[in-house]
């Protein structure tokens, strides 16, 4: 038995859930035309507006207060990670907007910046109003994304600014931002958290996360389209491949999160359940990292990504043992 990590109620949350776009049109080459452009994504944004106020997060307050400790910790940790990630992207995305390759890209990216602001507001409202969690620097310190990935994203977007919009630096930031942060980490976290929200009857959370996931779907689609453009131009293919590999390694480490002591039940059956649950979450991340490759025109990178991911995971598990002087629950249960 594991937590279901697929789309809730069979809905398609993003382009990776839809088998059609990733199906090769001829031979092994995916059809680039299946990815909408910046103009089409802008049009989708106009039609997909939602409001944090309409979600009425306060309706979850009583249900949250009655959560058992395990559920409270799992959901609290997941929401904290999502909030820290969203705050980080609102601070860094403007470098990609300022130096976008075309006006259509820039206008689309402006809509994304507005989305990210709305997501921050949603997660902060939910954490403070429904969950009663205080927003302070302790959240940043406890966040795997904040500790491990944010410095890399800040450095990448700084290079975009400092270089005056060097296209290679722009693609490097795009890969870290759209494909790894949004396409792998946020997508995996949103799925798992939405499943838990549904399980525990947190209706406002489930609705809000669905809205966020739809926005993220547009963001990811833009990232796939833009990265594909960079791959196809030939000049940035190797750079994008290299950034993708290093991003995937970092994502694997974030998902293990050696900085935080994991829940490790002493009862064997529960320990195995926990290990299966974590392994399933990690697998969602890896699956997404692999499935994106075809859409960005780098299907041949699959084996490298799988190897890099596994190696990074093993290093993170060793780091966990070193830090906590005990094995990670996934290792204990193996």
């Amino acid at each position: 038995m594991t937590i279901t990590t697929g789309p809730v109620s069979g809905e398609i949350l993003d382009i990776l859930d839809d088998p059609a776009p990733s199906r090769p049109a001829a031979g092994n080459t995916p059809d680039r035309s299946t990815l909408p452009g910046a103009l089409a994504l802008y049009a989708r944004w106009e039609k997909g507006q939602w409001s944090v106020g309409d979600v009425r997060v306060e309706r979850d307050r009583e249900t949250w207060a009655a959560l058992r400790p395990f559920a409270e910790r799992e959901l609290g940790d997941a929401l904290t990670e999502l909030e820290v990630g969203e705050v980080c992207v609102t601070r860094t995305l403007s470098a990609l907007v300022d130096h976008a390759p075309t006006d259509d890209d820039r206008i689309y990216l402006c809509t994304q910046l507005a989305d990210e602001g709305r997501h921050v507001r949603f997660f902060q409202e939910y954490l403070t109003t429904a969950a009663g969690i205080e927003l302070d620097s302790a959240l940043d310190e406890a966040s795997a994304y904040g500790q491990l990935f944010e410095p890399q994203l800040v450095a990448a977007t700084s290079r975009v600014r400092e270089s005056g919009g060097d296209r290679g630096a722009w693609y490097e930031a795009l890969v870290g931002y759209h494909l790894i942060t949004e396409g792998v980490l946020a997508a995996a976290a949103l799925r798992t958290t939405r499943v838990l929200a549904q399980r525990y009857g947190l209706h406002a959370l489930h609705e809000g996360l669905g809205n966020v996931a739809r926005d993220e779907s547009r963001h990811l689609t833009y990232g796939l389209m833009a990265a594909r453009r960079g791959v196809d131009d030939g000049e940035h293919r190797e750079l994008i491949a290299r950034c993708y590999l290093s991003g995937a390694e970092l994502a694997a480490r974030v998902m293990v999160n050696p900085h935080k002591k994991a829940i490790t039940p002493v009862m064997t059956a529960a320990l195995h359940a926990r290990a299966r649950q974590l392994t399933a979450q990690w697998q969602v991340g890896l699956d997404r990292a692999v499935r994106q490759l075809r859409l960005i025109g780098l299907p041949g990178l699959r084996d490298d990504v799988e190897r890099s991911w596994s190696a990074a995971q093993r290093r993170a598990l060793a780091e966990y043992r070193e830090r906590w002087d005990t094995e990670h629950p996934v290792v204990l249960a193996a």
């Binding site: 038995m1 594991t2 058992r68 400790p69 395990f70 009862m267 064997t268 059956a269 529960a270 359940a273």
Partner: peptide, 27 residues
């Protein structure tokens, strides 16, 4: 009970009875 419910129960039992880990072969 599913895997999540078993986890919740196990953690509640740990708190209630101050449970110690056991060797795999005793499971």
């Amino acid at each position: 009970y599913d895997s999540v419910a078993i986890l919740e129960l196990a953690l509640a039992l740990e708190v209630e009875f101050d449970l110690q880990a056991i060797a795999e072969d005793q499971a």
